[in-house]
Amino acid sequence: MAASSTVTAQAPARGLRAFLSKNTNIVTFVVLALALGALTGGRAFGLDSIQNLLIAESVRAFAALGVGMIIITRGIDLSIGYVVCLVASVSASFAQTPDYAAALYAGKDFVILVPIAAGLMTGALCGLVNGLLVAYGKLPAFIATLGTLSIARGLQLIYTKAAVVGSLKQPFKNISQGSLGPVPYLAIYVAFAAFVVWVLLRHTRRGTNFYAIGGNPVAARVSGINVERELVMVYLYAGVLYGIAGVLQAGRLGLANALTANGMELDAIAAVTVGGVSQTGGVGTMGGMIVGVLTLGIINYGMTYLGVDSYYQLLMKGVIIIVAVFMDMNKNARR
């Protein structure tokens, strides 16, 4: 609006500096990457290494995109790890080689679509339950998803009888393990999912509604937004993303068991928080979520590369979440 002298009294700061000061998450990522490069004399960034980083972080990225949207609506989801675990187990159970004697459905040969559909539906169902509990049951998201966490865990153990679901068919594993030239399939799926999330958040009415609900739920209602329906939808979308994560995780590892994806909620929440999705609600972007995943990924990868004990890595992750939230609270402190 060039003519609006009242509306545009002063131009907002532009240029690289403004961009960087607004996107501290990208700066953090670049600084960490450079530091790791310098520490290892560039060896940490061979093609293999980058491929490994992408593969390792891809599954997590789906979870992060899901919970990132939920946090934008001022919610939270603690059930991710066991939901992904349940999905992976259900999906894997339909992808076992038919001649494998210990298979859950021994002797049955399902087409490749069955494990995929079963996984996605399991994820969607878990998300739907979370959404209904939060939106219509009016439970705090923290408690509702803590409940589904335990339910998913129980179901997984009941369904698999606490056994490993292994011996998966190669075509199923290829979905996760293949690559297009040097680019792993997983990275392509993530790119596609990220694009869809970007369109949703940036270019649809529902996306704007998510930000509005997170920014001020009462005002959102007054503005005619169906808050309950939108909340169900955000948890449902997240569930579908966890579904994808579970199917891919099963294929990537070639099995599923009770330990699959354990603690993934921590990784995902940490990643989006580092990526600038605020716990106050109403703040965050797809780009931020992905940058957050890569930042945590490079920290993990760097520490592994430098030979830091994995116990210390766990400790670091906790510290990073606390520091990121602390900085975020100061930045977005209201008033």
């Binding site: 270019h203 649809t204 704007t208 930000y211 509005a212 001020n216 005002a219 959102a220 605020s278 109403g282």
Partner: peptide
């Protein structure tokens, strides 16, 4: 119950009328 403090003036203005601004594929 009025403003969305962290959102832009544009979003704060348009939030109740987005339904009238959907184009191809229902994108904003």
């Amino acid at each position: 119950s009025g403003i969305f403090p962290l959102l832009s003036v544009t979003v704060n203005t348009s939030v109740a009328s987005l339904g009238r601004y959907l184009g191809k594929a229902r994108l904003l």
